[in-house]
Design a protein around this nucleic acid. Structure first.
Length: 489
DNA sequence: TGTTGGTTGAG
DNA sequence: TCAACCAAC
């Protein structure tokens, strides 16, 4: 036994880290490595906001490892060749990692496992990201679930592990001189500087991200603790109000594995919340949606680009560069939509309520393909996650199989009035409307009540789409879908 | 985790 | 006139 490579991917933490934990337990020197190979995730290479986060998360992890006498080795791919090189350079005889579940990565990782084992290495993979891995949950008929509620019920009946692994007390390093039993053959390999991965944007648009987020394991724990102390109690009531800080905002930390769902469940219990009732139950079920997204992506991997519901294969989507651009820039003339799109652009994140509203406008009122939206979110969200993004967009487009009927069309004016009643969210991100009173802010040109002074919004565009007419057009297109079962191949 | 448009009944 | 409710999309 000479050394263990721990191949890090989206598990950038030290606590509750199964691969790292197993490597440390093994006793041999541990060599943590990150191999940057985005082209291996084609066609869903991480976007610009993801890369920004990754840069900072790697920096924090590297510091944390150094404080424990270890190092983070950075390399550029291709992954298999790089891992082999690292094995050769270090004298490692084992490679451990935590599993990912995406269509492009499952075959890649399987192949890597196969080749490394063929060359005589001990190779093990672990679950670090999910409460239940996708193949562990099956319906009574043996098929994967397609509806959330029974899926989540089944997960809860299967039991939820809330015992995180401890952070290793010490991480044995190749150069360590104290342990007497290990051969001294293992050595540190060379590392690329973080800057060589070129993850930061060349044009510095990332100031808003830096103001909003603290990537890294420590930032994740602060975020979770803050949520538990200030918002968890009233989560059920507050979670739908995009102007209020009522949600946890742990999604990017979860995506990069800076914190695990198991740690979150445990923290809820330790903070005195009964995970079976009240606000904690609602919050836990959002963790459940994340699990469900992974379940669906694993069992239906084609859904990253094609509808889960085959009736939608011939749906008459519109194409309009002008409309897409207006939507992306937050210039649709519909305040709650523009506020959401600008929140996304400025902070790399959007409240879930607004995500549904902007997605409904794009896919229903503008009747544009959900992939246009999915790709924009993919590039701009710091929490961009293939499983969650795919589920979310298919859900709003109506082509997913979950219980939301395709003919549901959000009315963004009503949604704004209901979930941003005082207009503070709109005013925060759409300063042109800063002086419009709450009673008119979600439909400033509708002329309801006394008419507004046009000077109050002269910089703000008129709506690019008539909500009533476009709703009717969308419903008409849905009516023309082939009947259930007709489109199956 | 929807919206609309209809009915009904209280005031 | 409006809230409450329901069915249909």
């Amino acid at each position: 036994m000479t050394a263990t490579l721990v191949w890090l991917r989206r598990d950038l933490r030290l606590a509750d880290q199964p691969a790292l934990h197993a490597a440390v337990e093994r006793g041999a020197p541990v060599i943590p490595v990150f191999v940057h190979a985005p082209e291996e995730e084609t066609p869903w290479q991480p976007g610009a906001a993801s890369n920004w986060w990754l840069h900072h998360s790697l920096a924090r992890l590297s510091e944390a490892l150094e404080r424990r006498g270890s190092q983070l080795i950075l390399r550029r791919g291709p992954t298999l060749g790089t891992l082999r090189e690292l094995v050769r350079d270090t004298g490692a005889d084992a490679v451990f990692w935590n599993r990912l579940y995406e269509p492009a990565l499952i075959p890649r990782d399987r192949e890597i496992k196969h080749h490394l084992r063929e060359s005589g290495l001990r190779v093990e993979s672990f679950n670090a990201a999910l409460l239940h891995e996708p193949w562990c949950i099956r319906s009574g008929s043996g098929n994967p679930y397609r509806v959330f509620s029974p899926f989540w019920k089944s997960c809860r009946q299967a039991g939820i592990d809330d015992t995180p692994l401890p952070e290793p007390q010490a991480i044995p390093a190749p150069s360590a001189s104290t342990a007497g039993t290990q051969p001294r053959a293992a050595r540190w390999p060379a590392s690329e500087p973080l800057a060589a991965l070129a993850l930061l944007p060349r044009i510095r648009w990332d100031a808003g991200l830096a103001e909003t987020w603290t990537p890294g394991e420590a930032g994740a724990l602060v975020r979770l603790r803050d949520f538990l102390e200030t918002s968890a109690e009233r989560y059920h009531a507050m979670r739908d109000l995009p102007g209020q800080p009522g949600t946890s905002r742990v999604s990017p930390h979860l995506h990069f594995g800076e914190i695990s769902p198991r740690q979150i469940v445990r923290a809820l219990r330790d903070a005195g919340f009964d995970p079976d009732s009240g606000g904690a139950d609602q919050f836990l079920s959002e963790i459940g949606w994340r699990e469900f997204a992974h379940h669906l992506l694993f069992h239906f991997p084609h859904t990253t680009g094609a509808p889960l519901n085959p009736r939608f294969e011939a749906f008459p989507w519109r194409e309009s560069d002008r409309d897409l651009h207006a939507w992306q820039q937050g210039r649709t003339g519909i305040p709650i939509v523009d506020a959401g799109m600008r929140e996304l652009w400025q902070t790399g994140w959007m409240h879930n309520r607004t995500r549904m509203i902007v997605a409904s406008l794009l896919t229903k009122n503008l009747r544009m393909h959900w992939l246009h939206g999915a790709r924009w979110f993919w590039d701009t969200l710091v929490d961009a996650d293939l499983a969650s993004n795919t589920l979310g967009w298919q859900w709003t487009a109506g082509s997913g199989a979950d219980a939301a009927p395709y003919f549901r069309v959000f009315n963004p004016v009503l949604q704004g009035e209901r979930f941003d009643p005082d207009g503070c969210y709109v005013r925060r991100y759409v300063p042109e409307l800063g002086r419009v009173p709450a009673s008119a802010i979600h439909a400033p040109r509708a002329g309801r009540g006394r008419s507004l002074d046009p000077a109050l919004m002269h910089d703000y565009p008129s709506p690019i789409v008539d909500l009533r007419q476009s709703r009717e057009a969308a419903l008409e297109a849905f009516r023309r879908l082939p009947p259930p079962g007709a489109g199956r191949s």
